[in-house]
Design a protein around this nucleic acid. Structure first.
Lengths: 200, 200
DNA sequence: GAATTACGAGACGGAATAGTCTCGAAAATC
DNA sequence: GATTTTCGAGACTATTCCGTCTCGTAATTC
């Protein structure tokens, strides 16, 4: 953040932004294969073709590199589709989400990050800020929309509703109890949504 | 398991079962304070007053000690109370559960174990077998009972119902998003159970 | 009492790795 | 061209910790 301002200040060779990007890309790729603890600074250096000293010139320590790699390369936007149908929207949302954190290439990254978060508050905060918060906000909007349209119960707390449908996915990802299949998502949506419809 | 049979076989000093218990107790205590990776065999030896060689005579490696400590000292039974009232039973179940994994002294152990499970399938299996499976079975019985009595919907899948109410607790434990308060449990039960009542 | 095995204490080997430092070359300012 | 800073490469320091081994002692069998 502050380092960038030095880039074109005084004399001396300017810092190479390309190197920084290469390091982040390599770090993100390593996160897809190994867990947080298993990734070494030497491995990041070798994979990116950078020197270790260069890595430590951009970041204060290993965690900082991996956290920024997560923020910039992993936790990207997840476009939310709005079909108009309540059940469809929720179902689609869960499927897209599962595609990223469970079925996809990056599933290991999420497991690894949540694992790391248990011992390191910095990692926990980064995970919440750059992944959970935006995802919750998007999902909440869907529920609010359907509540406003009268499709969902007006007494429904959209925050809680989001939490209720998404947490089973984290549960299965992290405990390994049961698989997440499309059929499972169907059951999940059916069961959860029954309580969200307006009372007759 | 097999070692025990040697205890009173041939000549030589018999193995001291008390030492084994002391080691497990110390390991369990250490789990309450530090995370899985931070606990060293030396620390277990020092805390229990045992020699390192003795530890390695009982277990093949560090993980095995901690896993057995978890199984024998942490994941104990959680008595389920049955009041007869559907909502009460579920509410009480969630509260007792939260008391152990979130509010209690042992909360760190659970976070640590689930973290460890992400990188080590042995830990994952131990956690599922000695904690998740029995807990799910107990909770399932409660739902089945109320389904049989007609209080809960006959179409309700008890397994899925259990998963839906418990996973938000794991979610908050592991992500640190939001606290688990008694009020939160109330909302959770209210919202989740709305979908579980018989259709009119 | 001879043989055998477990015990506590702790030395030891061996491997891994975070972060620093050194070096010569490259790229910028003045 | 002198100076300054970054770069890649990798040596180096310092630490940590698992698992084994040794030693003297205690407990048990035969």
């Amino acid at each position: 953040m502050d380092e960038n301002s030095q880039t074109s200040k005084g004399p001396g060779r300017p810092r190479d932004e390309e190197v920084r990007k290469r390091i982040l890309t390599s770090a993100a790729q390593l996160l897809e294969a190994r867990c947080f603890e298993e990734i070494t600074v030497d491995a990041i250096a070798e994979a990116s073709g950078a020197g270790k000293a260069t890595i430590y010139r951009w970041w204060p320590n290993k965690s900082a590199v991996l956290i920024e790699a997560f923020r910039e390369r992993i936790a990207q936007e997840l476009p939310i589709r709005h079909s108009g149908d309540f059940r469809n929207d929720v179902r689609q949302m869960l499927q897209d989400f599962t595609g990223i954190i469970y079925w996809g290439r990056k599933a290991k990254v999420f497991r690894s990050f949540i694992a790391g978060a248990q011992a390191d508050p910095e990692i926990a905060k980064a995970f919440r800020d750059s992944w959970i918060r935006p995802r919750r906000a998007e999902a909440k909007r869907i529920f609010e929309r359907h509540i406003a349209e009268g499709v969902a119960d007006s007494h429904l707390d959209p925050d809680l509703a989001v939490e209720l449908v998404f947490s089973p996915l984290y549960y299965r990802l992290l405990t390994g109890w049961g698989e997440i299949t499309p059929e499972y998502l169907d059951c999940l949506v059916d069961t959860a949504l029954r309580g969200y419809l307006p009372r007759t």
